[in-house]
Design a protein around this nucleic acid. Structure first.
Lengths: 149, 149
DNA sequence: CCCTTCATTGAAAATCATTTTCAATAGTGG
DNA sequence: CCACTATTGAAAATGATTTTCAATGAAGGG
């Protein structure tokens, strides 16, 4: 999502784009490929804004998730992770989580649309969002001989 | 999953089927349609086995999830939830989570198989499991006029 | 049987992520 | 410049889950 659109969303609801929030947003714009936890964001933010509090990070992440600027997700490691939302509707991707190295890969795909339509038609449930995670083994770990666990 | 198969899995790894574990398993066999949290399991177990400790519940849930007897899942309400695994491979279902009433509906479906195959072919990632959640509004809540939030 | 061993248990304490409280700060509109 | 309210940082509180530890108990060997 572009910064302009984000600012628009924030001012629509009378939220201020404070320096702390700017820094946090920048973290996400600079790390589009990562799925950051609150603690990780905190560590990154502190480099530019050392006196920020962890609570502010949590509050900002909540706020941005509320605005749909961030997607809050759970990869089963006991903490929430966040990534920038894709630009309205387009650009769908799923997460492939490696059971061996714990890496999270992204995978572009639109096929889920059909599935959603089919479910809506059959169940009467109106779907507005989804979260899909595939667990398995990435290419590297399939080849690796050494079991890690 | 049938009890027999579960016992088999446990003895394979030298785990004992203690009374506490039996009661917990029974809870799941008697509540196949629910997605119980540890606390909920604890409350149900206490009726039959009042002096069980919460820690034992957590330990047993971990153990059963480890054995793939239970699926550990997260519906975003801050606690893990568990359900009996379906019998090997067959019987796939997804979860439809209502954003208004928070109810979790189940939906039978096999269409994801194709998607998995397609992803495996294109990404080289070997998928062994998946977790799919659809967020939206159930039939009742679509009709309801009163917004809940 | 009795004894040793080791998994299991309950209760309490500890941990960890997240949320709340509260007083201080800082933008904004007048 | 003032008043109002959003926002912040630090500390305390919360809530789920995990760990610790001593006590219990089942299983096998002698």
């Amino acid at each position: 999502m572009r910064l302009e659109r984000i600012c628009q969303k924030m001012s629509e609801k009378d939220y201020r784009l404070t320096p702390q929030r700017q820094v946090i947003l920048k973290i996400f714009l600079d790390n589009m490929d990562r799925h950051l936890s609150a603690e990780e964001v905190y560590q990154l933010v502190k480099k530019e804004h050392p006196k920020i509090g962890l609570a502010t990070v949590y509050r900002t992440l909540d706020l941005l998730a509320e605005l749909d600027v961030l997607q809050k997700m759970n990869f089963g490691d006991g903490r929430s992770r966040y990534e920038l939302s894709s630009d309205e509707d387009t650009h769908h991707h799923h997460h492939l989580i490696c059971l061996r190295c714990q890496r999270v890969l992204e995978f572009e795909d639109d096929l889920l649309e059909e599935l959603e339509d089919s479910i809506e038609a059959r169940s009467g449930f109106k779907i507005v969002n989804h979260q899909v995670k595939f667990y398995g083994y990435c290419r590297d770990c399939q080849e690796a001989q050494t079991p890690r666990f």
